[in-house]
């Protein structure tokens, strides 16, 4: 079995990805396109992920022992990222190995201590690429959080060296508010999962640039998206997507100190307004967008990082009205204040 190998570097952490199927390579290279490194890295000290294609569950060389402890099961939100909602899963821990099973899709076996993850995907050619990307991302973020790089389910932008995080579930105006700020000159950090790192003095937000997925409803709010050609706004299932740099005068932003966290929800009102949130409420709202307890010590560290983040920013509930294109007028003064 021949394995293709790809190398990346995420903020000092080397990542090596190997797979036996081109169809399992493309979505990963797309996800990590800003982090690709062709030159040799010391992969021994980094993270190693391997994805294999299999024909059925019986072909997956992974047996779960009787002593395995089930941590969670359900539909949808296995870890941080919510894009593959509706996916039945089961997460268990077996002799230090975190095992995430996705019924009829595949299995991830994540060895946090060793910095390794193996993925087995059942007949990947029938799966949408965003699902393969989701499985890889899930394994990657579990490994990264053990290297003190945490992900958060949010969009993120930078404005003059100050970061804005917009966490939240789909359908609450997260991507719409993000595009409204992006088109007015904010720099792009991530559409769905920026990274957080505690640099000592402060918690910083780090870019994780990916393509921007938009619903048809979101497209309708922005004239430039409505009129964009298929070369810019690419067809995709279930959402169309574009690259920020193809549409706007923007660049990928720098790692920066977040100054604002906005929790949006759509209101039926002509004007948007902000409501300052007490920090405890903000942390409470942030936890389900970031933290899942699979490893106690990792979760303890991540909780402290999130608490520190909340302490250093102003948090607002954004009651997001119909004045979508005017959002920068509401937000930019907050970022210019106290500079």
């Amino acid at each position: 079995m021949s394995m293709a190998e790809y190398r990346y570097s995420l903020y000092g952490t080397a990542v090596r990805y190997e797979t036996d199927a081109p169809i399992l390579a493309q979505p990963v290279n797309e996800l990590l396109r800003h982090f690709r490194r062709e030159n040799a890295l010391d992969a021994d000290a980094g993270l190693a992920l391997r994805f294999y294609q299999v024909k059925d569950r019986a072909e997956i060389p992974l047996t779960i022992s009787a002593s395995a402890r089930q941590l969670a099961s359900g539909t949808g939100e296995a870890v941080g990222d919510r894009r593959a909602t509706g996916l039945p899963y089961k997460v268990s821990v077996d002799q230090g190995l975190l095992i995430a099973e996705f019924h009829e899709i595949g299995v991830l076996a994540i060895d946090g201590a060793q910095g390794r993850a193996d993925g087995y995907v059942i007949n990947p050619e029938r799966l949408p690429s965003n699902l393969i990307e989701y499985l890889f991302h899930l394994a990657l973020i579990e490994l990264l959080r053990r290297r003190d790089l945490y992900t958060i389910h949010a969009t993120a932008l930078e404005y003059n060296g100050r970061g804005v995080l917009i966490p939240g579930n789909s359908g609450r105006g997260k991507t719409t508010s993000f595009i409204s700020l992006l088109r007015s000159g904010y720099r792009y950090l991530s559409d769905d999962h920026p990274l957080l790192q505690d640099s000592g003095a402060q918690v910083e937000v780090l870019p994780f640039p990916i393509k921007i997925n938009v619903t048809d409803a979101t497209v309708q709010f922005f004239p430039e998206l409505k009129s964009a050609s298929e070369q810019v706004l690419h067809p995709g299932v279930p959402k169309r997507f574009f690259y920020a740099e193809d549409l706007y005068q923007t660049a990928v932003g720098e790692r920066c100190r977040p100054a604002l966290v906005l929790f949006p929800h759509v209101v039926d009102s002509p004007k948007s307004h902000l409501e300052l949130l007490p920090k405890s409420r903000a942390l409470e709202a942030l936890l389900p967008q970031a933290l899942l307890v699979y490893d106690q010590e990792v979760a303890r560290r991540e909780f402290k990082v999130l608490a520190k983040l909340v302490q250093q920013v102003d948090c607002y509930r954004l009651h997001f009205g119909r004045d979508i294109l005017d959002l920068p007028k509401l937000i930019t003064p907050l970022l210019e204040k106290g500079r």
């Binding site: 007490p278 405890s280 409420r281 942390l283 936890l287 608490a307 909340v310 302490q311």
Partner: peptide
């Protein structure tokens, strides 16, 4: 952690 007089426990 305690913030603004309220405590969040995990």
């Amino acid at each position: 952690t305690t913030m603004d007089g309220e405590t969040v426990l995990l």
